[in-house]
Design a protein around this nucleic acid. Structure first.
Length: 171
DNA sequence: CCCTGATTCGC
DNA sequence: GCGAATCAGG
């Protein structure tokens, strides 16, 4: 009479309810309960009618998560290219790059778009149309797309920007 | 890339 | 009822 597996027993469901209402994420709950995946937790939460809890500031989607499984529902809607465009005020100037040596990049950090992470500086370096185009990749300020150095350049006051425009080098 | 929850559907 | 696969968004 071996148990067929730790299904959703009373205890597990109660623990699930407690952790979920406590604000724990599905993956955390799954790891804590053990034996279940995060999808299992979410699925159970929905079946229990606990979904749509009050969230504060997590990365959860509000209520738009449905996906058309049948082709009858899927419409030939043009997909958004989901382009990540830093488009800093300096991007236009990058194309009109000054005659500085292109290899004058700081060896501190240069990353490709795939290597870019959320905490990395998105300051463009080099020609975007060139394969050797990189981003700064240095430690970005939390909540900002740039590191401290490039944040100063990007968020200069208009007056100051005008004054130091030619002094700005794109390294 | 990481992460989050939402939904569908075969089992 | 269950949950992997998938989808949608941050």
């Amino acid at each position: 009479m071996a148990d067929a597996g730790p299904s959703w027993t009373k205890e597990r469901v109660e623990l699930l309810k407690r952790l979920w209402s406590d604000g724990r994420s599905a993956s955390q709950i799954a790891a804590e309960i053990g034996g279940v995946s995060r999808n299992a937790v979410i699925g159970k939460v929905h079946r229990l009618g606990l979904a749509g809890r009050v969230l504060k500031s997590n990365g959860a989607a509000p209520a738009v998560g449905r996906r058309p499984r049948s082709e009858a529902e899927s419409a030939p809607v043009a997909e958004t290219p989901s382009v990540l465009a830093p488009a800093p005020p300096a991007l236009a100037l990058v194309q009109a790059a000054p005659p500085c040596t292109e290899v004058a990049l700081p060896e501190s950090a240069r990353v490709t778009i795939m290597e870019l992470r959320e905490f990395m500086c998105r300051w463009p370096m080099g020609d975007p149309s060139t394969p050797d185009f990189r981003f700064c990749g240095d430690r970005a300020i939390t909540g900002l797309p740039y590191c401290t150095h490039h944040s100063r350049i990007a968020y200069q006051p208009a007056a100051e920007r005008k004054r130091d425009r030619k002094a700005v080098g794109f390294r």
